[in-house]
């Protein structure tokens, strides 16, 4: 039966090892946002051996390009974007300490293998549940690549950000197994 875990960032390896696909996770702490364009630049920095704009050890990256914040709000609607566009960049970041990514949709084989190798997880957020997710984001601040506008890298302070474990550290894949379980063709 699926469990509910409240986890704090930066993520600890012992916590990650408890997680199984289908478990619900409520994340609290700091997470960082990045989409395609920001990933391209981050991975370039890694290649050049330069520092990233944030500490990647135990970090969580959320794939999101939020809507603009209304006055008095920390952020606008902020649901996940499709993750496969980040697949080419993800293993390089997992190799240097990234511990979780949050997005929607399944990942490539390379990313799955890299998660097992690096004891990391992929968390699915509910696509389209963008106003609900925005309410769990208490503070948002652009820390890099402001020119990318909605795609800039943001530092988010979240409390009980809801997601579901889609890939655990043991190599299980909820996209595969969920579909198999409910397929009636």
């Amino acid at each position: 039966m699926a469990e509910v875990y409240k986890l704090n960032t930066p993520l600890a390896v012992e916590d990650l090892k408890k997680l199984k696909i289908g478990d619900k996770v409520l994340l609290t702490g700091i997470i960082y946002t990045a989409r395609d364009a920001a990933h391209k630049r981050l991975v370039q920095l890694v290649k050049e051996g330069k520092d990233l704009p944030f500490d990647i050890n135990g970090a969580v990256i959320y794939y999101v390009g939020p809507a603009p914040a209304k006055p008095g709000y920390a952020i606008g609607s902020a649901g996940p974007t499709t993750s496969y566009r980040m697949d080419p960049y993800t293993p390089a970041l997992l190799d240097i300490g990234l511990k979780a990514t949050i997005g929607k949709g399944n990942r490539s084989k390379e990313v799955l293998d890299s998660m097992v190798k690096n004891t990391a997880v992929y968390l699915a957020a509910v696509g389209g549940a963008a106003a609900l997710i925005a309410k769990t984001i208490k503070k948002a601040e652009i820390i890099a690549y402001e020119d990318l506008k909605s795609e800039a890298v943001r530092r988010l302070e979240v409390v009980d950000f809801p997601c579901i474990v889609a890939n655990d550290t043991f190599g299980s894949d909820l996209y595969e197994e969920g579909m198999k379980k409910y397929n009636e063709e």
Partner: peptide, 14 residues
């Protein structure tokens, strides 16, 4: 037939 594919909400089965 589509709802027998098993993909489910967000592709996580159902």
């Amino acid at each position: 037939r589509i709802n027998k594919l098993g993909i489910g909400p967000m592709g996580l089965g159902g």
